[in-house]
Simulated assay, not measured.
Amino acid sequence: MLSKNIALVTGASAGFGKAIALQLVQDGYKVIASARREDKLKNLASLYPEDIFPLKLDVSKPLTLQETLDSLPENFQTIDVLINNAGLALGIKPVPHIDLNDWDQMIDTNIRGLIHLTQFIVKGMIERKKGHIVSLSSIAGTYPYLGGNVYGASKAFVTQFMLNLKVDLLKTPIKLTTIEPGLTSGTEFSEVRLKDKEQAQAVYANVDALTAEDIAKTVSWILGLPDHVNINRIEMMPVCQAPGGLTVSKTTD
């Protein structure tokens, strides 16, 4: 890997994104750390002021994406790696007790924002004949569970979009990888989803879950592989987790 390649990491203010940004700096990248919370990005950038550029970016507002990217300093314009990490889950209620605003926000962020940003970035990668796009999906896109509804569907979209994008880019040297983590602690995921800190903490009680650093190390390994190797998908779970079996309900309410 050439030193000082440029990586854009979305959702870099906390959790996976922050851990990935820090790992990539250690790996020799210059990192554009993007998220909505500018104060947290500036704190992150202060750790490596020469190598991390904080970029306030809301992927759920696709009309502003190109203008924001065009505002990058010249020495951060050529993006070699895109980490599509920004995403969220909201609520665990089953249909019909959901809040449609939550569904819309997940679609705007997890799907619409991701595909728009990818479209903007991949054009330059094609021109330069160089690039790697890594998107964070979830095991929720494969294994359904009560209350997963649109969140799981949005992550299934991410996985399938990336696989189809690989076909579109087959005659290019651009790499595409989807990472699908399971239960992961030490992030804001459950706090955002449940809107209750104590309830969120209970999700990870008495389990040895994955960590954001585990995901960051996986990204580092993927990006460090030889040019001819492409990892299509990685499904990750902690040892304490396994896919649930099929369920049959013999009664109806």
Rank of each mutant, 00 (worst) to 15 (best):
L2D: 09
I6Q: 05
A7V: 05
V9E: 00
G11P: 06
G15Y: 13
G15R: 06
F16T: 06
F16Y: 14
Q26G: 10
Y29Q: 05
A33H: 00
S34L: 08
A35I: 07
K40F: 10
L41A: 02
K42D: 14
K42M: 06
K42N: 15
N43P: 01
S46Y: 07
Y48S: 06
D51H: 12
D58H: 03
K61V: 15
K61N: 11
L63Y: 07
T64Q: 12
T64V: 05
D70T: 12
L72F: 14
I79R: 02
D80N: 15
A86M: 11
A89L: 12
G91D: 05
I92D: 09
D99Y: 14
D99N: 15
Q105C: 08
D108H: 04
I111K: 06
L114G: 05
T118G: 03
M125E: 10
I126A: 11
E127L: 13
K129Y: 01
G131A: 10
I133C: 10
I133G: 05
L136A: 04
S137P: 02
I139W: 04
Y145N: 00
G148Y: 03
Y151F: 12
A156Y: 08
F157G: 02
T159H: 11
T159Q: 11
L165D: 09
V167Y: 10
T172V: 01
T172S: 13
K175I: 06
L176D: 04
T177Q: 13
E180D: 00
P181H: 02
G182S: 04
S185K: 07
T187Q: 10
S190F: 13
L194V: 04
K195L: 08
D196N: 14
K197S: 14
K197R: 09
Q201A: 15
A202D: 03
V203P: 01
A205Q: 13
A205Y: 09
A212L: 04
A212E: 02
T218L: 15
T218D: 04
S220T: 12
S220A: 14
W221L: 11
I222H: 07
L223N: 03
L225I: 07
P226C: 03
V229P: 04
V229L: 15
I234T: 12
E235H: 00
E235I: 02
P238Y: 03
G244H: 09
T247I: 15
S249I: 12
K250H: 09
D253E: 11
